[in-house]
Amino acid sequence: MLVDAIPSSVLLVDREFRILSTNRNFLERSRRSSADTLGRKLHDVFPPGILDHTNILFRIQQAFSTNVSSHGERITYRAPGLPMRFY
Rank of each mutant, 00 (worst) to 15 (best):
M1G: 14
L2N: 07
V3C: 06
D4F: 04
A5G: 05
I6A: 10
S8R: 12
S9A: 15
V10R: 01
L11V: 13
L11W: 07
L11T: 08
L11D: 05
D14S: 10
D14L: 13
R15G: 14
E16T: 12
E16Q: 14
E16A: 12
F17R: 03
F17G: 01
F17H: 09
F17L: 14
F17K: 01
L20N: 05
S21H: 14
S21C: 10
S21I: 04
T22G: 08
T22N: 03
N23Q: 09
R24T: 09
N25F: 10
N25D: 06
F26A: 03
F26P: 00
E28C: 04
R29G: 11
S30C: 13
R31I: 08
R32T: 11
R32M: 14
S33Y: 04
S33W: 07
S34F: 09
A35C: 07
A35N: 09
A35T: 13
D36T: 13
T37L: 15
L38E: 04
L38K: 04
G39W: 00
R40S: 08
K41N: 07
L42D: 02
L42W: 02
H43C: 05
D44Y: 11
V45R: 00
V45E: 00
P47F: 10
P47L: 09
P47C: 09
P47V: 05
P47Y: 03
G49T: 06
G49K: 03
L51C: 05
L51R: 01
L51A: 02
D52E: 14
D52V: 04
D52T: 03
D52G: 06
D52S: 13
H53F: 10
T54L: 10
T54V: 09
N55G: 12
N55D: 11
I56T: 00
I56K: 00
F58E: 12
F58Y: 11
F58Q: 15
R59M: 01
I60Y: 00
I60M: 01
Q61H: 06
Q62L: 01
F64M: 02
F64D: 01
S65L: 09
S65E: 09
T66L: 10
T66G: 08
N67E: 13
V68I: 09
V68A: 04
S69A: 12
S69G: 07
S69V: 01
S69E: 02
S70M: 05
S70G: 04
H71M: 11
H71D: 15
G72Y: 07
G72F: 09
E73T: 06
E73F: 03
E73G: 08
I75M: 08
I75Q: 03
Y77W: 15
Y77C: 10
R78A: 13
R78M: 15
P80C: 03
P80Q: 11
G81C: 12
L82M: 15
L82K: 15
P83G: 10
P83K: 06
F86H: 15
F86W: 14
Y87G: 02
